[in-house]
Write a protein that binds this DNA or RNA. Sequence first.
DNA 1: TCCCAGGACTACT
DNA 2: AGTAGTCCTGGG
Length: 271
Amino acid sequence: MNQIIFENITHFNPRHTFLCGQCFRWEEESDGSFTGIAGENAANISMDGNSLVICGGGTPEFWENYLDLKRDYGKIQETLSKDTIMKTAIESGWGIRILKQDIFECLISFIISANNNIPRIKKIINKLSEMYGDKKKELGKTFYAFPKENQLFNIKAEDLAPLSAGYRAPYIAEAVKQFAGIDKEKIKTSPLVEARAELCKIKGVGPKVADCILLFSAGRFGVFPTDVWVKRVMRELYGFSENETARRGEEKYGELAGIAQQYLFYWRREQ
DNA sequence: TCCCAGGACTACT
DNA sequence: AGTAGTCCTGGG
């Protein structure tokens, strides 16, 4: 085990970051730290004052990228706080950072998330990783990395029966194959409408799941993933109707829409 | 028992 | 193009 320390880290709250709905493989410990696995690297993450302490695998470069440490979230929070409602939401969810996740993991995870609840989503993803992912020993425990494309490439829906994923199982099996034919560059750089359309070609991927993939793995901060909670909060706050929420959110918050969504989501769920 | 829980698909207008 | 009904599963 090695230890990595990043000094002078501000605007990072592990709890808000790991519990705001963007990821499924981190668990809170009794001391408030978080243990989980990202890519091939299992670790425990905590804040000690302004020091970010990471115990486990992975290089500093990996974690700097994954935790989005280079971005100035102080400035982002300041900008968004000009909206008084958003200011309140940020006071609740301060220190959220958008994790830079692997696109394949993101795709499969959010297909699983459709019409599902978080404990069950986590359970399904853990089981999938156990069955097909690489085994990692770290921190005296055993972890399983999320399977890579080639590790899932030949699976059939019936192979996934142990997951109890229900009607999502065939979506997963189909999505694995379809993902190979997707234009990844388009996802990263094309206008949002086109990037979203590219992702929606994949079975099991609709507007909400597509936006989650764009935000959490492609760094497209201009999207406003709209689930039932976000629809709820935007209706309560601004009177937006359900089917206009995504568009209005993008217009309202522009290039910071994705982060705004995370604050609003976390805040509303805390209430 | 019914109904939901961080949507998407399909089959209709 | 837009809208209802349906979809596995586990828990309240």
